[in-house]
Design a protein around this nucleic acid. Structure first.
Lengths: 356, 356
DNA sequence: TTGAAAGCGCTACCAG
DNA sequence: CTGGTAGCGCTTTCAA
């Protein structure tokens, strides 16, 4: 390693192509970019040389030259849910279709890692950023704002007025869930959430309150801070009561899988005694019996909306900060049953029979 | 857009830092890299300026200068299985720990997309590539070989002697599965695979044959080419026979979920009539009843092995081409039961009782 | 210890 | 239409 590697060894440079085609580097560049007319003769020569040598322009030189990287950074907690998966693939797809590449990083729900990864993305000079934020993305957002990197927040509503956002219409989704449960005769709904301090939870609670009032349904909330034992006890307590809830709404698939386990332990019959609905749409929702009823986020549509917003920012389209809220798809399956009006708390199977 | 954007607007350059610190750009660079001694006075001035201006070096300029990108590309079919997820996150983690960034692309099992993505990665001048190959990664591999980009193949054994590989010890895993089934009294095993032409299937078939011979077990194979109806018929036929198989081994979680459905349709009792084991370890394996028995790939270890191999290639460590085969973890759960010796095909529950 | 300057590979300007 | 060349921001050599 005598002196700094002269060029990347073995890779052809534009100069080599030019020499071989007996033209100037400028001409090669013109042919390649197509932005300047070149005579057929020379163009043919250049193209032959390019093909023969398998020439691929040096990305870093190109980017250094014109300031944009044509790379979009995307940061999400992980990809171990169907939803994030779908989002991640859809994003790669739309980016690729538009001539962009994607740089993908994971924050693992850790604000510190998130900040670190966003830094990395900025360092790499991503033209724009898509962030599925952690619970406290403050620093990362601050950084993006300071660096003036276009960024759009997806998935988790965030109280930050500097960035475009794409979120689920949580309030509307919750209203609709309650409406449909009420229509099935449910009159007491139990809602489990991580923490009421989150904006997403507040939106859902808002929808819950709205709809409960309208349909004459009672509701209660368990704030479950990752504490399985606590959830178990609260669940047991709520269900043991005289006028126990007949429907349970869970905030995500993790809670759903936990709750299903707990209900089994507690020997609570689902949907006989308790109907269950969960936000998120885990892969296994149709594999368990009874099949889990879900509130599904429109992952692809959300990502496409995010793309549009981001591209506009990147292209410096003047526009006020926007928040796009998309509608959820609600799918009631075996885990939800109707409650007979007459005999209070008597439950009637409504999903298709458990043919598995 | 009068003339080509002069520099990235708003971003500080090393020149600005130098001016502010009243030193030359060389000195700033020296301070930043730490590779050249700088007096305390100047170093302090530079550091202050850097901090004050929030200076971050231009990545592309750095890379252009010294030829390596410190970016590793990773290409996998998707991330919608727990295994690929884990692998993807583990890889990001190990890369980050080693000062590399990861560029993540998905091939969707399409050789054409795979080739395209690998091209992209090479275009970005990734220092190295990790490939979870499609079934026919030939062209992509050819490209990497031609461009002399270090690449390691992970997950799916590939008949290509130019690259390091990290794979599961499929032969060993299959042997062990059979050994354990045999120990439980199973004497006829049914193996379902996608296509016997695949190397991974051949390895597994090899292990199956070995172990069947050793333990006096009979085996048969269904080659299932994504044809659910065909699988259903074959399954029905096999199970209707006089000496029907008592254990079913599936090649992946997709097959597993399909097979579970089909067995239910066919009213086959699992594990009563048929024990079921699947390669892969889907998230839902412990959520279904009976819990699915699995052969789990050591995702993290595989990725770490891949990293080591790759880094050595990147650093031009001379070494012969290596294939690292790692051991699987086999977990028998409710879906596997013992077969009583006396009454042929009489099955005994051995998993923990179906508490759910 | 410091600074000046060459040059990484490319694009785009401008002169011919 | 074509070619020469400046310069993107940085690192590293070399001379002071």
């Amino acid at each position: 390693m005598a002196r700094a590697r002269k060029a990347t060894p073995g890779r052809t440079r534009i100069k080599d192509v030019a020499r071989r085609a007996r033209v100037s580097v400028g001409t090669v560049s013109h042919v390649l970019s197509g932005r300047v007319q070149v005579s057929d003769t020379l163009r043919a020569r250049v193209q032959k040389a390019v093909a023969a040598m398998g020439y691929v322009p040096n990305f870093h030189a190109q980017r250094l030259r014109h300031g944009m990287s044509r790379v979009i950074g995307i940061c999400m907690p992980h990809t171990s849910t169907a939803y994030l998966n779908l989002a991640s693939e859809a994003f790669e797809e739309v980016a690729s279709r538009n001539g962009y590449s994607v740089m993908h990083v994971f924050s693992r729900h850790e604000p510190a890692i998130e900040l670190d990864r966003i830094k990395e993305l900025i360092h790499y000079r991503a033209d724009g950023l898509v962030l599925f934020p952690s619970f406290t993305p403050g620093e990362a957002l601050e950084l993006a704002a300071r660096k003036e990197v276009p960024l759009v927040i997806v998935d988790r509503p965030t109280p930050d007025r500097r960035f475009d956002q794409v979120i689920l219409d949580n309030r509307g989704a919750m209203r609709e869930v309650v409406r449909r449960l009420a229509a099935l005769g449910h009159r007491r709904i139990l809602f489990v959430c991580q923490s009421t301090s989150r904006l997403v939870t507040q939106h859902r609670l808002g929808g819950l309150a709205d709809a409960c009032k309208r349909h004459g349904v009672g509701s209660e909330t368990i704030e479950f801070q990752h504490d399985a034992a606590f959830l178990r006890d609260e669940l047991a307590r709520a269900l043991a009561r005289k006028r126990a809830p007949t429907a349970l709404v869970l905030s995500n698939s993790h809670q759903a899988s936990l709750a299903l386990r707990l209900l089994a332990e507690l020997r609570v019959d689902c949907p006989g005694e308790l109907s269950v609905v969960a936000f998120d749409d885990p892969e296994w929702s149709t594999l368990v019996r009874p099949a889990l009823s879900v509130v599904r986020q429109p992952a692809v549509a959300m990502v496409e909306a995010a793309w549009d917003l981001l591209i506009q920012r990147i292209n410096r389209v003047a526009a006020p900060i926007r928040t796009v809220a998309l509608e959820a798809t609600i799918e009631f399956r075996g885990s939800v049953a109707g409650v007979a009006k007459a005999a209070d708390s008597r439950v009637v199977q409504i999903g298709r029979p458990s043919s598995l």
